[in-house]
Design a protein around this nucleic acid. Structure first.
Lengths: 195, 195
DNA sequence: GTCTATAAAAAGATAGAC
DNA sequence: GTCTATCTTTTTATAGAC
């Protein structure tokens, strides 16, 4: 008793999502026309408007969903020490982002193409994610395990370093992701540790 | 004696450069029309083509000039130890990039909008800059001062961390640039130092 | 849900007057 | 060197048939 034969919604919708991520990451949001997107999906341009009211909403949905996925996946580690929780965060951040290079790229590159209201929504979610790391660093500093001059700066510095992996890492390259994580964890750990 | 009265070349050219940097950084290369650029400059669209053969060449020139400025300003420090040269690099990198937020933003965001050939040219220059830091880290590791698993990864990790300052730092904010540099230097130093 | 066709606006780039 | 005017193409989005 399923859906009618003519309903391609649950096939076309994920295809649009995948194609948009790929093309926006490769060429940039403004450089990708709805025609080019439709061609990549395998439909005509007009059909896209069954799934999004306009191009802007399509971009916004991609970024919002990505941030929600990130926040949902970033479970608070139950480890007792801040050092262990930091290790967990580093491992999680690198793996999660390495799995979604297009989402991550778009999330950093195309914020400026969001409307003011949509930007504010995405920015709030991003801030929530940063707060997870900041809480770990604050706990470690309070316990005397970490030596950090300014917690907020340290948060941004660590996230920038970790997210930078995405600019060069490719699976099957010289180093495995495990090796990469090992070295980044070593650098992050040392950078915040007390003497 | 002087130039002819009708020649506005040395006035308009830098205005185009400044306007293009500002608009490309704010809205993205593909999202800025030649008409919008002309309006920002204060001329008509057709006049722009006295200064660039096309839009692509305009973008390429901005990025190429920026990388050449960077390489020229990044003088090799004569300090005897790798640690001192690293400190010099951190200070230089943060200051140089903080002074040119638009150039830096565009250099990371709009690489994908360059033609294959133009991209290769800019990429070669970027690689040369990375090599400056990598040489410092290699020297320090060879001397036993640094403990780094992979020099190339450490290079990219440090540059990503330092360039990340540009995503949030604003002059006149909570912290001075000197304070920011002090903390980043502390984190970078610790992250590469041997036990 | 997808198609064809089209409306209406905007794009990159050029020609020729001044 | 800049202007106005224009050519040609492409854009986002909609209407109506199937």
């Amino acid at each position: 008793m399923g859906r009618t034969t003519g309903s391609h919604s649950d096939i076309t919708r994920p295809k649009i999502r995948a194609a948009a991520l790929r093309l926006f990451a490769r060429h940039g949001f403004a450089a990708v026309s709805m025609r080019a997107l439709a061609t990549e999906v395998g439909v005509q341009a007009g059909a896209l408007y069954n799934y999004t009211p306009d191009k802007q909403t399509l971009l916004f949905t991609l970024l919002q969903d990505h941030m929600n996925d990130l926040l949902e996946a970033c479970t608070s580690d139950a480890a007792p020490t801040a050092l262990e929780r930091l290790r967990h965060f580093v491992d999680f951040h690198i793996r999660f982002h390495a799995d979604r290079p297009d989402e991550v790229f778009i999330s950093y590159m195309e914020l400026r193409n969001l409307t003011t209201e949509n930007f504010a929504t995405v920015e709030t979610l991003r801030r929530q994610y940063e707060d997870r790391l900041e809480a770990i660093l604050r706990d470690g500093a309070a316990a005397g395990d970490f030596a950090i001059a300014d917690t907020k700066i340290a948060t941004l510095a660590v996230i920038a370093m970790l997210t930078g992996v995405n600019t060069w890492f490719r699976a099957g390259g010289r180093l495995s992701l495990d090796e990469v994580i090992t070295q980044y964890w070593d650098m992050v750990r040392k950078s915040v540790m007390a003497g």
